[in-house]
């Protein structure tokens, strides 16, 4: 009905509905909303690309020729390649046990799984420094045995796992709870094994939600700054991920290179948003669609 009202208004038919605002208020509200979003969303995105190409394509491409930039890109991909699958397996296990079974303390468990979202990224990095840093709880022991966790790849991976911890689980739990257990029970009664039931009954049912969770998890894993910054030690060419490399270039007043690397991360964000919209359209109401923290 709203569409009919809007169309009639556009055609100039004088027909006022009681369940919408006057055309003037409507236009004003749309104008304010668009102006606000342009100011806060469109311009920041646009400025990244404008700055990146401000000295031409040559300077833009040169930023990626640098060995440090390439090392940062490789490290970012490696960290995501380790942490996303680990959180994917955890998400599936957590969702299976929470959604398919009834047990006591379930809501407490779900609150605990969501916990990392309410922890500041800096604190997320700090807790691992306190455990594995030179002055940390296991620091001296690790040093004795020549194992490096803080200010090395394992620390970066741990911090990344922490900040992306809830993404897959919180997407799958409501979805699998809604789907219930009848289809799995039917498969099991017909003689399928548990594993086969999971692969051929459950997995196809949750595939869009799973993909959605992995997508968000991956975007955050590649873009995390605060937590990784605290635990990485900023060793150029060794423990710098892409967001940290952006910071270093920026602080060295190498703006074109900083925005060039940033533009790559901005593209990742745009691809994530596009894929997210596609999945929401494809899967309809089955996705929770809530933003993470």
């Amino acid at each position: 009905m709203l569409d009919a009202v809007a169309r009639n208004t556009q055609k100039g038919i004088r027909w006022r509905s009681v369940v919408t605002e006057s055309a003037l208020v409507r236009r004003l509200a749309i104008a304010i909303a668009i102006a606000f979003l342009t100011l806060f969303l469109v311009l920041p995105l646009a400025v990244v690309f404008v700055q990146a190409f401000s000295k031409g394509l040559g300077a833009y491409l040169a930023a990626f020729q640098e060995p440090d930039a390439q090392a940062a890109i490789k490290l970012t991909l490696l960290v995501a390649a380790i942490s996303v699958p680990l959180n994917l397996v955890f998400g599936l296990a957590a969702a299976w046990s929470i959604a398919k079974f009834d047990f006591k303390g379930k809501s407490l468990l779900m609150t605990l799984i969501d916990l990392p979202f309410s922890v500041s990224p800096v604190v997320s990095g700090l807790i691992y420094v306190l455990l594995f840093g030179a002055q940390g709880l296991f620091g001296p022991w690790l040093m004795e045995h020549g194992i490096k966790i803080a200010f090395a790849l394992p620390g970066i991976v741990l911090a990344t796992i922490f900040v992306t911890f809830p993404f897959v689980a919180r997407e799958l739990i409501p979805l699998m709870q809604e789907q219930g257990t009848s289809e799995e029970e039917a498969a099991l009664t017909l003689g399928a094994s548990g594993w086969r039931t999971f692969l051929t009954v459950t997995l196809p049912n949750i595939r869009w939600g799973l993909l959605y969770g992995v997508l968000l998890c991956n975007a955050r894993a590649m873009g995390e700054f605060g937590a990784v910054s605290v635990i990485s030690g900023h060793i150029r060419g060794l423990t710098n991920t892409m967001p940290l490399h952006v910071e270093i270039l920026y602080n060295e007043y190498n703006f074109v290179a900083a925005f060039a690397v940033a533009s790559l991360l901005a593209c990742l964000a745009l691809v994530t948003l596009a894929a997210k919209s596609f999945l929401e359209w494809r899967a309809g109401d089955t996705l929770s669609g809530r933003p993470g923290h």
Binding site: L2, A6, L45, V246, L273
Partner: peptide
């Protein structure tokens, strides 16, 4: 509530601060 051209794109854009790495947002701002 309202229908206007570009609504779907703007709707998708709302999640940008959530998808854009914070360091990128920082230097862009």
């Amino acid at each position: 509530r309202y229908h206007f051209p570009g609504r779907a794109v703007i709707d998708a854009m709302v999640d940008l601060p959530f998808a854009l790495p914070t360091a990128v947002a920082g230097i862009a701002l």
